[in-house]
Design a protein around this nucleic acid. Sequence first.
DNA 1: TTGTAAGCGTTATCAG
DNA 2: CTGATAACGCTTACAA
Lengths: 335, 335
Amino acid sequence: MADVAAAAGVSAMTVSRALRRPDTVSEEVRARVEEASRRLGFVPSRVASALASARTMTVAVLIPSLTNAVFIDLLAGVQEALSPQGYQPLIGITGYGPEAEERVLRTQLAHDPDGVILSGLDHTPGTWDLLRSLTIPVVHTMDLTAEVEHGDCPVQTVGFSQYDAGYAVGAHLAARGRRRIGLIAGQLDPRTRQRCDGWRQALRDAGRHDPALELMVPDATSVALGAELLERALATHPDTDALFLCNDDLAQGALFQCARLGIPVPERLAVAGFNDLAGAAWTVPPLTTVATPRRAIGVEAARLLIAGMADRTPKDRENPRRVDLGFRLMVRETT
Amino acid sequence: MADVAAAAGVSAMTVSRALRRPDTVSEEVRARVEEASRRLGFVPSRVASALASARTMTVAVLIPSLTNAVFIDLLAGVQEALSPQGYQPLIGITGYGPEAEERVLRTQLAHDPDGVILSGLDHTPGTWDLLRSLTIPVVHTMDLTAEVEHGDCPVQTVGFSQYDAGYAVGAHLAARGRRRIGLIAGQLDPRTRQRCDGWRQALRDAGRHDPALELMVPDATSVALGAELLERALATHPDTDALFLCNDDLAQGALFQCARLGIPVPERLAVAGFNDLAGAAWTVPPLTTVATPRRAIGVEAARLLIAGMADRTPKDRENPRRVDLGFRLMVRETT
DNA sequence: TTGTAAGCGTTATCAG
DNA sequence: CTGATAACGCTTACAA
């Protein structure tokens, strides 16, 4: 920067200004600085800038895993909204564990991010303490604030009601006249559980809930697991006439297995998935599922953060928001 | 750090040492510093550290897109290898355009990464110039260095031969006795083209290449596109008895469409995909495809980078490596 | 083994 | 509108 300043015949400070806020310097100086800067191939050091200005232009984004399309879409939305504003996402992988999340968060905080985006609301007390102590905006995603604020700490959330979405599926299956409605779930994180809770309540409301038809395993969801669990579920309860699979990959695996076993869908068995992942509309038959606004959640979370980071107010604590982006039941042909 | 130093009764420099290289201070001092550090909740500022040491502990990772599972896997591998060593990946999305890639690279370089990982070898002259001028290690992935070095600039690559992989598929289909073997490709980046080139050569070698059976479109690949293109291909050339779809999502879409149209696979039509994406082993029938070592490529690229970053040698120019991680033809039931 | 001094490359601040 | 000066929080280099 000193070199550019010398070349342009101005002070370093003026170079800094000319490059960051061209409107604060005279037209003539701006031109000279830009020319010199370009000629010398000057690239301002963001590190130095960060140290001097206390703004790193980075945002910590914590997600459970990179192999779950749901969080990739979230990340894509975040990236899409952040990057035009000059912010860099710093991704942190938590592996679905609140303890690991706390560790990763601490690591990320050492980078002095200007904001934090988290997945879910299932954090350790240590994490809550940390977050409370921060003076940068924090947004929690993929879930909505519960009635009670967390540990007297107002919280900003962007998501949809996992419970309501699960309820919608249960209600839909019941409305279709199914009597023996089962559930298959993997990856039992809090969000999955909420979906299951909603589904369960819907069946209770319809007077058709049978706990025996619930098959819940901790394993990560996958097409393979869906195929396997479908077989197991039908083996135990052959009279099952409808199944809610808590994620589309499970549902796709189940559909494949039905095809293999010669089980007609939806005639003999109705199948519903969750998330409306890529290809769900093209399975045979096309899969009934719930479209979730994952990308939009990322975009909105980033927007809230940017707003909070712009005015250097200590945090949006005073004004916590709860943004419900909803969901859509996609009724296709498997039900 | 000054506060911790005061609390521990030592100088700031000693705190810095005690925390980074505990073996360089006396046991007693180390204990005092750690205690004080913990008690005060001290988190060293990486920004300041970066400025002072000229090491940001970040690595720029440029990939075309977040919605392509291939690059997510690559990223996951990179992250997995980088993060235990204390490095942070900085992701940059290039959208498959060399020009956009150059822009993104320039942006990332402002963050002073300690290393760079790129996808492919298809860069603009400007990008090559930039890379040549860097004093940090650079690794290119998903492809292998061609015979001729790029613009006299030795290059480090980790990948596999897209050409050979394509050839293997073509040879396999021919060996299965298929006569009218077609090709469906989307996302026509250089890697896809190389796969197609290999496939083409295999068919020529078998004396069965018919350019009319090639259907190449620029659109991003997807299950939906696969279904659509399958129908279009068969409409134009009903006698096609085998198809290579250049990515598994296309192949899955094609399989779905075959099921819908009542086309028996593999009896009437053999289908081969590429990449062995999640679920490929579970389609009906299970999909023949090529397993590519995407995650391993990420891990290996990160390893090479770490090696190059450790010893602060200007760059691994002197010792460019070409790491071929191979591929595996997964013969399943669609062929 | 520990401490001192001098930056690292910017930007905030305030004066001109 | 421009510039001088003092940080920002740490690490390198060297001295003790």
